[in-house]
Design a protein around this nucleic acid. Structure first.
Lengths: 201, 201
DNA sequence: GCTGAACTAGATAGATCTATCTAAACCATG
DNA sequence: CATGGTTTAGATAGATCTATCTAGTTCAGC
């Protein structure tokens, strides 16, 4: 039986294929560049099925997709932050971004940041904002655990999320992982400075 | 007489209006979201004029626009970096981004990073990459002048560009200037650490 | 003021996009 | 096996997008 309510396994599989294909396209070209024709072509799902699964059409599909991608990354990030130091977790985070860029031959960016950058749909924008907030909170929690004050932890977490998103954008644009490595070095410096319970001011 | 070659003042004005309108749309929605219809509507320029000014069509227009926007920001950045310390210049840079977000009511992002994030046109991507490289070089030059080694200066400059682009993206998405302020604080820390001629390793 | 090149104007073609609609296939249940 | 709700399929309408085409306007130089 399906995990969520009355949906059949077949429907779940269709929904999944649609979301995977949409996530790919969103990470490559953002919302305006991701046509439903291509979503169907890539996923092998028929056009009508898409509107059965997502009755509100594209807006519904992309917002759902961004929330899902963001939640998956958030869960991973939270798990990693539980298991290791903030410094190590942040290192893994940037290494992961770098690997993703290489794996896609610099064809993909962040599945959340990329569509958010060019969105004129407020639902999509708000969904991405919630994702960023979740990531930020997870990092801030770890920073507080390592002795930072609430404000300092929030600011550090915000800067790390921005740095990550920016490095993915610049790295993809320059078709190089160097921005990711430089960002990882800077992130390590930020995490290292004033850590261990003492704030700078 | 026109500055560049044989073009008339009228043509220059038309070209300028087209580029201004395109820059706005690119910063708002990226290349896929910027329709030529709307470019013409906003600029008050007729459709045919657009293809006279930019015979290669949209690809030509957007690449020219990104180069121009990037050069303008680059010149400003270089001027500021000449006149003040790296720390002050970087502070001004983030303050400028924050002011831009507020002025546009969070409707616009970076006119270079936003279209670059979702581009599938290699000409546009390469144009944006050159812009980022110019910014990075300007910052690195200032960092070397303040005593950093070549490698450390490059890495710092790369991280600052990524941080700036990321903070604009996240700030616009969250409709807040807090990411910009947090990024400015982190940037100040990065610029401050290991400055004045001593490297960390 | 004539003339030819440069520029502008708007209509239109052809492709593509979102969304809807009808019909058929599937499958759990009685 | 029959039945009826659920899911899928593909055609199609209507809007929008890029690019081209023809005609008209403006302006510099002779």
């Amino acid at each position: 039986m399906s995990v969520e309510g009355t949906r059949s396994g077949r429907a779940d599989a269709t929904r999944e294929r649609l979301l995977v294909a949409t996530e790919e396209l969103l990470a490559e070209r953002g919302s305006h560049g991701a046509g439903l024709n291509e979503v169907c072509a890539r996923s092998g799902v028929a056009y009508g099925s898409l509107y059965h699964q997502f009755p509100n059409g594209k807006s519904d599909l992309v917002a759902t997709c961004v929330r899902r991608s963001g939640a998956a990354i958030g869960e991973l990030l939270e798990a990693v932050l539980e298991q290791m130091s903030l410094a190590d977790a942040v290192g893994a985070m940037f290494a992961n971004g770098s690997a993703m860029l290489e794996r896609s031959a610099f064809g993909r960016g962040c599945p959340v940041g990329t569509p958010a950058a060019t969105s004129d749909d407020d639902v999509l924008r708000a969904a991405a904002a919630e994702v960023f907030a979740r990531w930020r909170k997870a990092i801030a929690k770890s920073a507080r655990r390592e002795g930072r004050g609430a404000r300092a932890a929030d600011d550090l977490a915000s800067a790390l999320v921005s740095l990550y998103e920016g490095a993915l954008l610049v790295g993809r644009t320059e078709q190089s992982t160097r921005p990711l490595r430089a960002a990882a070095g800077a992130a390590a410096l930020l995490v290292g400075s004033a850590a261990g319970g003492r704030e700078t001011k």
